[in-house]
Design a protein around this nucleic acid. Structure first.
Length: 252
DNA sequence: ATGGCTGCTTTGAGCAGA
């Protein structure tokens, strides 16, 4: 079973690239973030034609998450209540999956930063309950936290800043403490492995990136994981998302 | 390079992202 996550930064702009990704990597499940589209306008037609069923939780203009799967998603749920569409869960086969789009946080000390930390606390509480019901649980998405210095192109430049602060990293580790591992770090990985590069300042060309897009696996599910990779080449496409997809391979 | 992109919004300058 191949599971993937991608922050598309608008499903309508990235639909062609998404269809190409589905064709080339043939994932069984894809979690999408920042679809930026209300549910009635989600492009179900072309995705169903490509062989994927869609569970969606979108809103106009901002945020928005979706889960695409080759089989019908079961027990679809939107998690804890929030006006911002940032969480969606579904069961595919034997695996429970949660698609998450964590808040950006803007800057330390801002209202959005407080919202980010509170959102992480709510996510943690929700994961505790979800894990009790679903021991095989995968959490995929844009966490908007670079977990460690090795996930940052220039740790000294980013020290204490948004995505890299100790407070955010502690909030992220609190998720792991519930009973998850970062699938990417189960395997040897190249140095400078990032999943997001700023559109500005030639960040991708300079490889000035952060690893913000992650696949967390419950300790019950992690032994089934055989690989986890970042599809970096999509960031080099024409009119790319600023995030690259992440894909994990699970043994059946 | 703290922006110098990009995509969105009752279309057009301002917000948000990260």
């Amino acid at each position: 079973m191949r599971i993937a996550t991608w922050n598309v930064n608008s499903i309508s702009v990235r639909l062609g690239q998404l269809l190409a990704l589905l064709e080339q990597t043939k994932p069984d499940v894809v979690c999408l973030q920042e679809t930026k589209t209300e549910d009635a306008r989600f492009p179900r037609g072309p995705l169903e034609a490509a062989g994927y069923r869609c569970a969606v939780a979108g809103q106009k203009g901002y945020n928005g998450v979706a889960i695409l799967a080759r089989t019908e998603p079961r027990d679809v749920a939107t998690g804890f209540a929030d006006a911002q569409k940032r969480l969606l869960a579904a069961t595919i086969g034997t695996v429970r999956l949660a698609c998450v789009y964590a808040p950006n946080g803007e800057a330390l000390g801002s209202q959005k930063y407080s919202y980010k930390l509170a959102w992480y606390a709510r996510l943690r509480d929700w994961l505790v309950r979800e894990l009790a019901r679903h021991p095989s649980l995968a959490v995929l998405g844009d966490f908007n936290v670079a977990p460690e210095d090795r996930d940052v192109h220039d740790p000294e430049l980013w020290r204490g800043r948004i995505h890299c602060s100790e407070e955010e990293r502690a909030a992220f580790r609190a998720l792991l403490d519930v009973g998850f591992v970062d699938a990417f770090r189960l395997f040897p990985q190249p140095a400078h492995s990032y999943s997001w590069w700023d559109y500005r300042g030639g960040a991708f060309r300079r490889d000035a990136g952060l690893r913000l897009d992650l696949i967390l696996l419950s300790t019950g599910l992690a032994p089934r994981c055989r690989a986890c990779t970042i599809e970096r080449k999509l960031r080099a496409a024409e009119r790319p998302s600023d995030h690259a997809p992440v894909i994990a391979e699970l043994q059946p």
